[in-house]
Amino acid sequence: MRQVDYRGLAALDAVIDYGSFDKAAAALSITQSAVSQRIRMLENSAGELLIVRSQPPSPTEAGQRLIAHYRQVRLLEAALFERPEVGEAKPEIAIAVNADSAATWLQEAVTPLMSSGDCMLHIRLDDQDHTLTMLREGRVFGCVTSETAQVAGTTSTPLGVMRYLCVASPAFAARWFPDGMTSMAVQQAPVLEFDRKDMLQERFIAQRTGYTAHYPHHAFASSDGFVRFVEAGFGYGMLPILQCEPALKAGTLVDLTPGDYLDVPLIWHMWDIQTPFTRLLSDNVISTARKWLL
């Protein structure tokens, strides 16, 4: 049976996590040449390339599998000890969530874990249609996603539905949508989207008007800033009702399509790794999401 070189795995993980050999060496308290040597030995043992020497370095498919294994082993090892000794690295858990969950209900879910200081949580943001890729590649322990595909070795739990409304400032609505949201209007009015992965607006426009071609749009990848930009009249956009309800009540935003909305089911996927920290995190994510989502 082939023996796993965990010093080599630690070096591999650090290079990818920190984005350079220099920073990985500093994190591991060894020299850069030692990091390179450990990875070369690991690649010789594996019989294939594990890192693409780009800027920043990126793992090959085989390298990503080894990193996923290493991170799962670290989580399991952390469960063997109630608390790390002084000077010993604390266990880390990485999760991926969509920005709208991070801006609304996630803080309540992670408070018990993060406030204790016994475990370090790394929260990575991506579109809800893409977070499952991070889980599949082993980059995170769990993710909030809209995808229903099952990944071997993981469990999935429905969280509820995040409802999105199409909103704008009153002045913007009066200027660009005097006759409501029509296919002609959406070809002229600037949309505010989160980033190139954001498909919510495209889906809603097609659902509402049947229009599926190009429309003008701005992009601003900040969930909190997104609300302020829409309120400022820079564009119209899709916002979760959890986030825009106060502005709707205050009159700084208006619903462009009253009674029409877009529902996005969210699911919690996690590797089947049972430790006190992962159980606490998972239980809180599920219970908090179900408290706030439809």
Rank of each mutant, 00 (worst) to 15 (best):
R71Q: 14
E108K: 15
A221L: 05
R7Y: 11
L200K: 13
R65A: 15
Q274Y: 08
T288Y: 00
F81S: 13
Q55C: 03
A89T: 14
H122P: 00
L262P: 02
S223H: 08
H214Q: 11
D283V: 08
T104Y: 00
V167P: 04
L49D: 09
M199W: 03
I16M: 02
H130V: 10
S101I: 08
M120Q: 13
F204W: 10
G63T: 10
S169E: 04
V161E: 05
R74M: 15
A173V: 04
D224L: 13
L256T: 06
F234M: 14
D198R: 01
W105Q: 09
A232K: 07
L242S: 10
V35T: 00
Y70G: 00
E88C: 07
N44D: 13
C119I: 15
L159Y: 00
D126R: 10
V4L: 14
E202N: 06
T209G: 11
A250L: 09
M114Y: 02
L281K: 13
W292D: 02
I30W: 06
E231R: 14
L75H: 08
F220N: 13
T252N: 07
R228M: 01
T252E: 03
F226S: 07
L248E: 10
D272V: 00
D195V: 08
G225I: 03
F194Y: 15
V4Y: 03
T148G: 05
F172T: 09
G235K: 06
L165A: 06
R38C: 00
